[in-house]
Design a protein around this nucleic acid. Sequence first.
RNA 1: GCGAGAGUGGCGGAACUGGCAGACGCGCUGGAUUUAGGAUCCAGUGGCCGGAAGGCCGUGGGGGUUCGAAUCCCCCCUCUCGCACCA
Length: 945
Amino acid sequence: MPRYNPAQIEPKWQAYWEERQTFRTPDLPTSKKLYVLDMFPYPSGDGLHVGHPEGYTATDIVSRYARMRGRCVLHPMGFDAFGLPAEEHAIRTNTPPRESTEKNIENFTRQLKMLGFSYDWNRVLATTDVEYFKWTQWIFLVLFDTWFDREQQKGRPIAELPIPEEIAAEGEAAVRRYQDRHRLAYQADALVNWCPALGTVLANEEVIDGKSERGGHDVVRIPLRQWMLRITAYADRLEKDLELLDWPEGVKKLQRDWIGRSTGAEVDFFLGDADAFEAWKSRRAETGFPEEPGEDVLRVYTTRPDTLFGATYMVIAPEHPFVPRLTTSEQKEAVESYCRKAASKSDRERTEGSKQKTGVFTGAYAVNPVSGQPIPIWIADYVLISYGTGAIMAVPAHDTRDFEFAQQFDLPIVAVVDPGESADVDREAVLAGQACFVGEGTAIHSGPYDGLPTREFKERITADLSDKGLARPAVHYKLRDWLFSRQRFWGEPFPILHELDDEGRPTGLLRPVPESDLPVDLPPLEDYKPHGRPEPPLEKAPESWLYVTLDGKRYRRETNTMPQWAGSCWYYLRFIDPRNDQRFVDAEKEKAWMPVDLYVGGAEHAVLHLLYARFWHKVLYDRGYVSTPEPFQKLVNQGMILGEMEYTTYQTGEGVYVSAADVEKSPEGQWQRRSDQVAVTPQRIEPDQVEKRGDRFVLKDHPEIEVESRAYKMSKSRGNVVNPDAIVRDYGADALRLYEMFMGPLEATKPWSMAGVHGVRNFLDRVWRLVIDEGAETMRLHPSFSEEPATDEQRRVLHKTIEAVTRDTEGMRFNTAIARMMEFVNYFTRQERRPREALEPFVLLLAPYAPHLAEELWQQLGHDESLSYEKWPEADPRWTRDETVEVPVQVLGKVRARVSVPADADPAALEEAARNEPRIARLLEGKQVVKVITVPGRLVNFVVR
RNA sequence: GCGAGAGUGGCGGAACUGGCAGACGCGCUGGAUUUAGGAUCCAGUGGCCGGAAGGCCGUGGGGGUUCGAAUCCCCCCUCUCGCACCA
């Protein structure tokens, strides 16, 4: 009984591909290249999730299709294997994280191979491979060796950094410190997010609402010496070059917003007596606007220099260095208490009561440079130390935040922009200082600038104040420098040495580990437990690792490690030349394969991973190590796969049903009845207890009770996780692949459905029976199989299928491509004669989607080579066009009949045929035909009166 | 609050450039076959009225443009995902 048995044929073909190295890619492309890349997975202990094979199947189809079209395809896979879970496991079990990591990689590899992806497994790599992170460290040293030349907008070797004379005069140590301050990789005392529970510092991006993204633990802010990467230097190019990319607009916009470029002006406000103001001004007129603000001014950044005349007070961040100096003795206590509170508050708490602004007066005043008026300086946490200059001029009439603050503390509000008459602005209230207007308008109360429109005003005043040395045009970014060190064990060690003096104390001077000494491997540790202090676990490393002597000098190794992002910043380059021990990638191979033509992965990496990788790539580009300005030409985000659809009812403690529409979440996160806040419990019910009434679902037994119906994200806690191993066991890998592609568009979020898996498995069974005689004792072709030529009708079906499947595969519309193949099978299953001429091309069309089944059928059809490099079938236009078409005939836009006409019938013939159709003739009788619309091959429409 | 995306049968989803709404799959109904099957094959399946022929309604809601709108424009509603005082 030769039934379709994926459990048998799938391992068979996987072994075949592996033994014959079917998907081994040459070092250099032998025909037009195509680089198809998946976002490589983190090998967690849970194994593959059904979300992984979604993107992986899509790229596999593209790769297999491209090979059959004669392209030379690079399609690799690897593992992003550094990271917290492995380290936490190490701490729990006191085993080296490498052990569990390697076990997980093995499991992932098994699962990936079981799905039949056509990766070149010779190129597999893990970011934790010592031979891999050797080059991650090497790239770090490139960053360390690079400074950013603003004039050329380009990263250059640190040796080319011009040294100011006064620095050079101070000697070599001063020069080295000066260079260190300009490197793309530099150290800084940063206010960091220290997470005591995880025992590490987290990047801003890893802190969500004041809690750690992983685990949801509390995070506090403490200052600590950190490695930073100067990604802000590249902000402009990272933004501009998005234009070059074939990426979803949404992702580009996310990146643009993240970079957050804004233009405006930096303005200095004089700190001192109003009498000294004029003297200061004339000094400034001579010296111009200084690079660094002195102690006698408060420098602010504003995007609305046109509202300077309306600046009635100033605000500085609680962390601003001027706080102690500006605070008067009367205000000292209040200020100190306020700043203490602000420091202890997480970002979450700061933003929580965002309606309620808090702040405290310093007691000091600054002089408004345009009006000469003294205005008070306040401290408030709505001003962030990390953006702009950490200080603002407050214009309450034209900035919502300033307006709220001014109302809270009764500060003057002076309107300086007349919004004009408009339906949605209360002009009177704005002019009276009772409402806030943030739009553009016409200047008022602005001295010589009165009457200017906002835009012109901005330019004029910026230029005027620049001439007087009071301001300068400025560009700022929301993007911050990248906090690049972690206080963890399981990451790449920094290849950096700290120089020690004779007493063994650090001198503050740095030295990169010589390239010949790379890699710096991780030392073995006695235990992996965090010691609860913010210092890294590598502090516990053996002295033999920790201390190094080079050229007679003693050094201590850097003990921070790199964040997980590091390894994924350049893996796409290493895949091109994974075993090279001389270079991170061979230049010729890099040039031949880059850029990545198609990159598919989850939308969760839309900003960080992609931005970081682009940044590294640009540095490598500037330094001449790679040939393209951007790494990933085309990007596609696969949508999330949700769990199976769930129906939920809510009941009170007494068992009374509550309609889903009447249920809300309490502030504490509990479900409750909206009307009286009585607690209710959600309960999942079976679909057969539910029916549809109108546009909602209700309980069959209680139709007045509305049921909630939706699909949830898969999670262990909800228990709706689908395991790919189980699907492959029960339905086969081809069924899993096909189902994930058939669910809907690749980019869409879609719910899982076991019934749907069953459906595609059914299709694969039908494909099998189309070719194979299932009823026979031994394996043989179906009795309907024929060597005779196909009929004209069969050819039309075949060639239309080829045309549609080709078009849809090209456009990555895999769901509709599969639908077309199903139609083919439905048609040919009904055929008494199934000619080879039709079956063979069909098997080739199916091959990228269900490669195991296709290979098996191909073999049964008498071929002894894999079909992986067979020529993709071509649609013959003679058979894709019908000779006659059925065209709908409308009267007043409603379809009333259909007529069969030659496909190339001209409008007159079409109209003629339509008028002759008996039903239409009857409808037109006695009516006046005002107009006839004919679209050849599509329709006829009579407009009658 | 701001931004992006999406609302089409019982369900997942199709529909080229404005031109037959519901391809394909699931489910359901009926039939054939079978010792039996949750297997296979065939047919039907948006709603309402009707015996039928046929008619009317129908792509979240309301308006508009057009001979013709799921598709274009305006207003509103709902859901999902981002962002969260960035001066």
